[in-house]
């Protein structure tokens, strides 16, 4: 049952920052990240904007080449594959983007959008039209939409089309990069429910990226919290929400406004002091990246040495000197 589908090991992605003539530094967008996603589960990735969530997702799919590290998909390292193997990987691992307005080619009809990957991968279909209609119906659209262009659809509908395109390939693994953050809450609920249903039906494995903790909690079985290119806490979603270990996770949780006035009043009193903003990933702080904002930072330790990611309780990892021995 708990069979890993994807294992990311020490993944790094540095983007060079170009000066006038030469590279003057690196944006360490993803800096030594390791985690595992089991088959059929949803792994949530949260963090504030710019912390490297999207880059992690894109690097795993090799839409950008990793600087170093291993991506083991189905027991095979995919960082070096090419040709036919790559093509097969592309079919099995897919991505859905945040912005529904630019993720569909404005010059392709829905039919073309969905059939293109199918044809490219040589997936046999008897009646293409029938095939596409079936897919559209499975995402809540219908025959009427077959030969329309993207601009004729709303944001929510476009995300459905994007989803139908993924389904056509019958992938195993899908990176969902904030698939609902451009949508309104009522539409968001529709899409989230549909993603859950599809997962149940087809056994998809998701990497669910979001900055919205409520959404991540709703979707994920396990999750990771990212800060400045690093994973600071990994574990089952339930556990992280019940018992957040890393001070950054605690800060994030206490910063979310809860849609319940009683609870809000109650929490107001015992809220953790939320301070500062994430610094630039070009020159991240020494030691633990979070120490300048951390109320528990120990001088001489947290600002010098990077904490390792250690298992504190079963399957619950945290990178913080509060829990590790130096």
């Amino acid at each position: 049952m708990m069979e890993p589908l994807l294992k990311v090991e020490n993944l790094k992605k540095y983007f060079p920052v170009r000066g006038l003539l030469r590279t003057i530094g690196y944006v360490k967008a993803v800096d030594d990240v390791s985690f595992t996603i089991n088959r059929g589960e949803t792994f949530g990735l949260v963090g504030e904007s710019g912390c490297g969530k999207t880059t992690t997702g894109r690097t795993i799919l090799r839409l950008v080449e990793p600087t170093s590290g291993k991506i083991i998909f189905n027991g095979k390292d995919v960082t070096k594959i090419r040709g036919e193997e790559m093509k097969e990987f592309r079919r099995r691992a897919q991505i859905m983007f945040q912005d529904p307005y630019s993720s569909l080619n404005p010059r392709q009809t829905v039919f073309e959008v969905i059939m293109e990957p199918v044809r490219f991968h040589g997936i046999p279909v008897d009646d293409p039209e029938e095939f596409v209609i079936k897919l559209l119906e499975s995402v809540g659209l219908n025959e009427m939409h077959l030969y329309r262009y993207p601009h004729e659809f709303s944001g929510g509908q476009r995300q459905r089309i994007a989803l139908a395109r993924l389904l056509a390939l019958k992938p195993e693994f899908i990176v969902l990069d904030e698939p609902t953050s451009a949508l309104d809450v009522s539409v968001q609920a529709n899409i989230l429910n549909m993603l859950k249903d599809l997962q149940k039906k087809y056994g998809f494995t998701y990497l669910f990226i979001s900055h919205d903790l409520g959404v991540v909690k709703y979707m994920s079985h396990r999750m990771g919290v990212m800060y400045l290119g690093k994973l600071v806490e990994v574990g089952p979603a339930e556990k992280i929400f019940e018992n957040p270990l890393h001070p950054y996770t605690q800060m994030l949780l206490s910063a979310i406004p809860v849609p319940d006035p009683d609870l809000a009043r109650e929490l107001k009193a015992k809220r953790m002091n939320v301070e500062g903003e994430p610094p630039s990933p070009i020159n991240p702080p020494q030691g633990c990246h979070f120490h300048p904002r951390c109320p528990f930072a120990k001088a001489g330790l947290c600002d010098k040495k990077e904490p390792p990611l250690i298992e504190v309780e079963k399957d619950h990892y945290v990178a913080c000197w509060l829990y590790a021995k130096s």
């Binding site: 809450v185 009522s186 609920a189 989230l192 909690k217 929400f241 949780l253 809860v258």
Partner: peptide
């Protein structure tokens, strides 16, 4: 009902 409350346990969101 459509908002996923991070502090509550939600089995299923009710979408409009």
């Amino acid at each position: 009902r459509a908002v996923p409350n991070p502090l509550a346990k939600i089995e299923r969101l009710d979408a409009i």
